[in-house]
């Protein structure tokens, strides 16, 4: 009973603090520090993401072997050993090196796609919310039509038509995520656009562009940052799924989903070839989702 009322009180104070102007104006460096000390989940997530990012950036120096070098002699004993820490795959390629180079691919394609979606979605959401009327109706209508496509089917249509490439994957993810981001930004814009300070900016004779991006957009920063990391996770899954289905990035470049697909048929003989890349992709997505959870908790606590 006491515990419950304590929780209730905590929840209320938390939600009050969340709207506190002073808390909102604190710098992001401080926010990150707060997050590290207060949310263990967020910290774990950030650490996982950071590890993979470092591995990806320094792949040429860290990876012990070439990710595409085929060595049939190694297939006699493909299991993890002192020379090949995670073993080799069915063509004798070093799995650890392929994972590290694969991280490079995923961590280039996924953030680019999400950033593309955020830029397009933010722009359309601001425009729809601020202009209203016919502009709003047209933008949201087009967005709804795109959202009506189940995502995977949208991928399949585009890839059947234009083939599989990093560019097409980025384009599809941008197109299918932008409407959702536009909705978030539009919601914030509708909420903000009648505030006094926006009216003041209008009085000063600021351009619509200035008002949208300088006066209104910063208010959407919190939800957008949380959404960015959530979406980074989903996009990593999406890229992995495309690779697994055989419609992802073209070989021989290492792609985690593709690695699972290639070795999947051999799971009865050499299970490590599929399990290891599956663990790698899962860990990256868990990292992104944990960081998003931590950030959300931090923003709720002010």
């Amino acid at each position: 009973m006491t515990e419950v009322s304590h929780d209730l009180a905590g929840g209320r104070v938390g939600s009050f603090r969340g709207t506190d102007a002073a808390a909102a104006s604190r710098g992001w460096a401080r926010k990150i520090y707060d997050l590290l000390t207060r949310s263990p989940i967020g910290t774990i997530g950030a650490a996982i993401l950071l590890t993979w990012t470092i591995l990806a950036v320094f792949a040429p120096w860290i990876a012990p072997y070439s990710p595409t070098k085929i060595d049939p002699a190694l297939i006699a004993d493909p299991y993890p050993s002192a020379q090949h820490w995670l073993g080799v795959d069915h063509l004798g390629r070093d799995i650890l090196s392929r994972l590290i180079w694969g991280a490079r691919t995923v961590l280039t394609v996924a953030p680019t796609a999400v950033l593309g979606a955020v830029i397009l979605g933010t722009f359309l959401g601001l425009l729809a919310g601020y202009r209203g009327g016919i502009v709003d109706a047209v933008i949201m209508r087009i967005g709804d039509t795109l959202l009506a496509f189940p995502k995977i089917i949208l991928y399949l249509i585009i890839i059947a038509k234009f083939g599989a490439s990093a560019f097409n994957i980025i384009a599809v993810i941008t197109l299918s995520s932008a409407p959702i981001i536009a909705r978030i930004v539009r919601g914030v814009t509708l909420d903000i656009k009648n505030r006094d300070y926006v009216a003041a900016a209008r009085m000063r004779g600021e351009s619509a562009f200035f008002i949208m991006f300088v006066e209104i957009l910063p208010n959407a920063r919190g939800p957008l940052i949380v959404d960015f990391f959530l979406r980074l996770g989903y996009t990593t899954i999406a890229i992995g799924v495309l690779g697994f289905l055989g419609v992802g990035l073209p070989p021989p470049d290492p792609d985690w989903g593709g690695m699972v697909k290639e070795a999947y048929g051999m799971i009865f003989v050499w299970p490590h070839m599929t399990i290891i890349p599956s663990l790698a992709i899962s860990s990256l997505v868990i990292g992104a989702n944990f960081l998003a959870t931590g950030l959300r908790e931090a923003s709720l606590d002010g």
């Binding site: 699972v260 399990i275 663990l279 899962s282 868990i286």
Partner: peptide, 18 residues
């Protein structure tokens, strides 16, 4: 739930299959 939602279906499939 966060971990479950983070593991792609194909990876979960591989783990359960193994």
């Amino acid at each position: 739930s966060s971990i479950c939602a983070s593991i792609p279906e194909f990876a979960m499939g591989v783990f359960l299959l193994a």
